[in-house]
Design a binder for these strands. Structure first.
Lengths: 153, 153
DNA sequence: CTGATAGTTGAAGTCAACTTCAAGTCAAGC
DNA sequence: GCTTGACTTGAAGTTGACTTCAACTATCAG
């Protein structure tokens, strides 16, 4: 293993938990940057790991990659981001998570009142209201992540 | 408008909130059934609306269509499902929603402790841990529905 | 009977976030 | 210098849940 302060794709993949293909994909999407060796191979700065931690956290919260990219674009260039920078970016997530939790809680409570009667009426039952949570999703979007649902498949 | 007790695709679409294309898709997936006119057009029984209400509710909870199909397959055939039938099917959802809410709550609380320090360390911060919620999703699956995220895009 | 409106089909497209593939090139330890 | 393992690329494939399209056909009010 080399002793430079630059990391190879494999090293970054191993340390971050992202697949190499994901790292290359993120680079194409403008979320990451890497210098190249004379032979064309990627070499990453060590701070890419924090950036990737941010990306994973943002994805956990439910941000799409383009939103993550937009957030990352607000980081000051020319200097390494500080803790305050990262903190600022993730501050708004709390509200977002609150909303998500509230929506799911409403859904659960609606279910509580529906289980008893078994109605599932399209008109009266808030639980299956088209205007509720699941409606008007864009094409192709799954509702909840597999990781949240896989345990009780 | 006809006065039969059978519904056209358009009527079902309007009453259920599903697009006609979604109804045809569900039929191909075995979630719905329709009789046909002599001319080949679909005609739906009135109880298809309750079935669709169930489908929407299940989707709201986060079930995939194949899971919904499996659940619907446990309905007794030969008779119209009763309220008890529907109630039985949706009873397990409560637990599932509880888990989803708990996972998001853990995530939010992890965020709370991370906001202060801005660490986002891959090693120490539970919030961005690869093994946490967002990790190991299958390809193509979005984390949260647009409906939950669109307001505070 | 006619014309407007609504319905039919299979095939292909969409979206997000990646993964997989084939065919080849680089880096480094011995 | 050679071998081995890691790396490179663009293109195409995957998944789930639909939507869109083009080219027709059916239904029904008047």
């Amino acid at each position: 293993m080399r002793t430079t302060d630059l990391l190879t794709v494999g090293e970054v993949a191993h340390r971050s938990g992202f697949a190499p293909s994901a790292l290359r994909f993120y680079e194409r999407q403008g979320l990451l940057h890497a210098t190249r060796t004379s032979g064309g191979q990627r070499r990453y700065q060590r701070n890419v790991l924090r950036r990737l931690a941010f990306i994973r956290a943002a994805r956990n919260v439910g941000l799409r990659l383009d939103e993550v990219a937009a957030a990352l674009a607000t980081l000051p260039d020319g200097r390494t981001p500080t803790k305050d920078d990262w903190s600022r970016l993730s501050r708004s997530w709390r509200h977002r998570l609150d909303d998500e939790i509230a929506a799911l809680t409403r859904l659960r409570d609606g279910l509580e009142s529906c289980i008893g009667c078994g109605c599932l009426s399209l008109r009266t039952c808030a639980f299956s209201n088209p205007d509720d949570i699941g409606a008007k999703r864009g094409p192709g979007a799954a509702f909840l992540p597999a990781a949240l649902t896989k345990d009780r498949g």
